[in-house]
Design a protein around this nucleic acid. Structure first.
Lengths: 247, 247
DNA sequence: GTCCGAAATTGATCCGCATCAACGACCTCA
DNA sequence: TGAGGTCGTTGATGCGGATCAATTTCGGAC
């Protein structure tokens, strides 16, 4: 087994880079990625009064499936797992939320998935009612929300292909490549991938077991595609990973 | 094997019931289910001029993945399969579209899936540009589109659970129950389920092979849950089907 | 440092579904 | 009425990933 170096340091740096120093929307670092990007200065000031910052500890649940939705959240810092449970406990992670993601929109008024903090998480929280009142007559904001919903829908469909039609190795390679791309969009490209989620989380995201995920990581390392390090992986051969992900 | 009676007749009746007689939005039968439900009389009249009716033959492709999106579609009549292909030909059906469904919204300007007519299909077609111009400053329409997008997102996540975490039998039972519920929403409940799509379509929707779908149908019939008839199934024991789907 | 519990890895075995192959049902068309 | 094609069903077999079962590694407390 390869020596492990802390990719957590890199994760820390990454999180610091996108850290919202929180006092004001004006210097919120996730703004360009969030729904707030569509607001002008005056709207932003009004909007600011609707939000309250909140912090969640590792593994804390931010909201649960089927609960009546009372708040919307703008993720400022940290990573969350979004998941659904079957009555017998089987879990499907439907996505990981990164800073800038907007959570809480529902059609039914009840959350259609649960959301946990993975590490420590900072959010902007809005009451549903006041947010809806604010958004009601702002077409540019509505269009922005729409755009994000449609982007998520595209991701969801991509993930359906992965879950329904890809092998374990393809699943893991696809996960690594698309996780890298998501981080890169905010943070710039890097061959060192922090993976703050557990193997179990990855398994439940990919529709596999923890053992299969672990074996597949090991196989990719044997094949020289990745190096497994503490808290993440090093992408040694991105081209090969992409080839596995595409095929 | 059980005798087969034509459920196609029932499907025909179903389709007739929701048939848009097409001349005018005013007597369009899918309106209450579509985005048009949010428009007032004046808007509807303006909107009407933006649309052109079109008909597609069985198996005809309405639009293809990756194509630049030039039109939006309101499905009036018939059923469509929405799917994505991997380079090696593996297919994942990401959904079936029914009358009232609105197709064509993209984040990137390119379709993120392909759409085929299953039987004969009638649509309302809008040019993307004129639709966007029309919708731009109509918050109620934007909210309606949003609502539909979020509903689809919820469905997509539900389907991820199915693809990632359910057994073949659970998948088939879930499919039958939720197909019944979708039809019922428009058409009223019925124990006779028309299945206009092929076994291959069902397999590609559920992440299975055609053989496994066929065997599972047979098993459900042996167990008295369904009766297989021409062009569909008869749901003999809805409660048991729902139990399989829930578990 | 040592101890402890949780997470990850590895190995052995099993099973659900895929694959490969044949057959049957139904349709169209000559 | 029969030939041929497509679709669906059924059977035999194989394999990828699940399951069961140890270890090993890691991180934190002291």
């Amino acid at each position: 087994m390869a020596a492990r170096q802390p990719a957590e340091l890199e994760m820390k740096a990454f999180l610091a880079a996108i850290e919202s120093n929180g006092q004001s929307c004006a210097d919120c670092s996730v703004r360009p990625f969030s729904i707030c990007a569509s607001l002008d200065k005056a709207e932003m000031q009004e909007f600011e009064h609707l939000s309250r910052h909140a912090r969640f500890s590792p593994c804390e649940t931010v909201f649960a499936e089927e609960e009546i939705t009372t708040s919307f959240y703008n993720l400022l810092d940290g990573v969350m797992r979004l998941y659904k449970l079957l009555p017998d406990g089987r879990r499907q992670i439907v996505g990981f939320a990164l800073p800038g993601d907007f959570l809480g929109m529902t059609a039914s008024g009840r959350n259609n998935f649960s959301a946990d903090a993975i590490g420590t998480v900072d959010v902007c929280r809005f009451s549903k009612a006041s947010f809806q009142r604010f958004a009601e007559d702002k077409p540019h904001l509505l269009r922005r929300i729409n755009e994000l919903a449609i982007r998520e829908l595209a991701q969801a469909r991509e993930h359906m292909v992965l879950l329904g039609r890809r092998s374990a190795e393809e699943k893991v390679a696809t996960f690594l490549v698309s996780w890298r791309d998501r981080l890169a969009r905010q943070n710039g490209a890097s061959a060192t991938l922090p993976l703050p989620m557990s193997r179990q989380d990855i398994a439940d995201y990919l529709g596999l077991t923890i053992e299969t995920v672990s074996r597949t990581f090991t196989k990719l390392e044997r094949d020289g595609v990745i190096e497994i390090i503490s808290g993440g992986v090093h992408l040694l051969d991105p081209a090969r990973a992409e080839a596995l992900a595409a095929a």
